[in-house]
């Protein structure tokens, strides 16, 4: 295997130094970390467990709104704040109020999304294959409309979030590091998780759920827990993104189903679903191409991204890492052992 410690060191050094090395791109690189988080959490269900969710964006949006409500609610009455008379209040947060609200908001977003994931699991894990995909897509589309119709949280008009109690440059750097930490935390957590029994169990569900049931695996429990992990980190990412944007509204910012919602899937497929590094690689490549085409191919950017997705699913279905694994199997440990048996080891344990 490629030495993972070099990858870890490289990512960490880049992550910590990036705002100083590339000060003009802090926002784009913050977004890159969020994209990595998106791809990693999508892959937990889509790649590792074989449940292609097109609705994970719901947790991003719900996390964003929960955080906003909590951040505002610790100081003001939310209904007043979102009413026309509340407009003057956005800048009225003392630093202590702001940071307390933010910390509680992020926490509430994560926990709230986990609770929501438990509820969704009851309904959606009865669906298999394309029905699950379409069911969750419906969920994402409905969520945006529902929030848009709810005046308490500003309806379709959206909410302006509390203003960061310092200059915009410090805000950019502050949220940059929060994005970095949440993406790294997602990676470290999933890396551990996939190395426990849990990892094998969700892989078994992916390969043959009926067999897994016949072997007595607690499939429902595993599926629910898997969605909860995704929801937890996605909720945090939504809370951060909302605060970076400063102004949130349901359709474009909180529940962007056809952009972020689809990017999650595209990035994981591009890098290689069902692997740990594939989604990360996919997110980096995808995000780079997206940013470059947005800058240099304006007007054609969607065609460029669409072409990338088509090439990926037509010619490279296994993604970049899956392709590498087929080409160099021994790098990935897929070898026939010359030894005939486990040999001199102690016998009789079986």
């Amino acid at each position: 295997m490629i030495k993972e410690k070099y990858l870890h060191a490289g990512l960490l050094v880049f992550g910590v130094l990036a705002p100083f090395l590339f000060p003009n791109y802090t926002v784009q690189i913050s977004l890159l970390w969020i994209m990595i988080l998106f791809a990693l959490t999508w892959d937990t269900l889509g790649g590792q467990m074989g449940y292609n969710s097109l609705g994970n964006i719901v947790f991003f949006g719900v996390g964003m709104y929960i955080s906003a409500i909590v951040q505002i609610g610790v100081v003001y009455d939310v209904a007043l704040y979102t009413s026309p008379d509340g407009a003057a209040l956005t800048g009225n947060f003392a630093p202590a109020q702001y940071y307390t609200g933010l910390a509680l908001g992020i926490l509430a977003a994560a926990v709230g999304c986990v609770i929501l994931a438990v509820l969704f699991s009851q309904v959606f894990f009865g669906l298999r294959g394309p029905y699950f995909a379409i069911g969750t897509l419906g969920l994402a589309l409905a969520a945006g409309e529902l929030v848009g119709a709810w005046d308490y949280v500003g309806g379709g008009g959206g909410i302006a979030l509390p203003v960061f109690p310092s200059d915009p440059k410090s805000q950019g750097i502050f949220f940059y590091y929060l994005c970095l930490v949440s993406a790294l935390a997602t990676y470290v957590f999933l890396r551990w998780l996939y190395n426990t029994r849990f990892g094998l169990a969700i892989n078994a569900i992916r390969d043959d759920e009926e067999k897994a049931e016949a072997m007595g695996i607690h499939t429902k429990r595993h599926k629910t827990a898997a969605w909860c992990t995704s929801a937890f980190f996605l909720g945090i990412s939504g809370a951060l993104f909302g605060n970076m944007t400063g102004f949130i509204e349901p359709l474009e910012v909180a529940f962007p189903t056809i952009t972020f919602g689809i990017f999650m899937v595209a990035m994981a497929l591009l890098g290689g679903k069902g692997t740990l590094w594939g989604p990360i690689l996919g997110a980096i490549v995808f995000h780079l191409i997206k940013e470059v085409t947005w800058t240099y191919l304006l007007g054609w950017q969607w065609i460029a991204l669409g072409t990338l997705i088509i090439i990926n699913v037509v010619y490279f279905q296994q993604g970049i890492l899956g392709w590498a694994r087929d080409k160099w199997p021994d790098l990935f440990g897929l070898t026939v052992d010359e030894a005939m048996s486990s040999g001199s080891e102690k016998r009789g344990s079986s």
């Binding site: 029994r197 078994a204 009926e210 072997m215 007595g216 069902g274």
Partner: peptide, 23 residues
């Protein structure tokens, strides 16, 4: 199963390990 069923994308050791009793 009559139509043999295994976890086809996992390796053999993993297939066996995940089959520990879940009682």
């Amino acid at each position: 199963f009559q139509q043999t069923r295994i976890y086809s994308k996992m390796n053999c050791v993993e297939n066996i390990l995940i089959s520990v009793p879940h009682r």
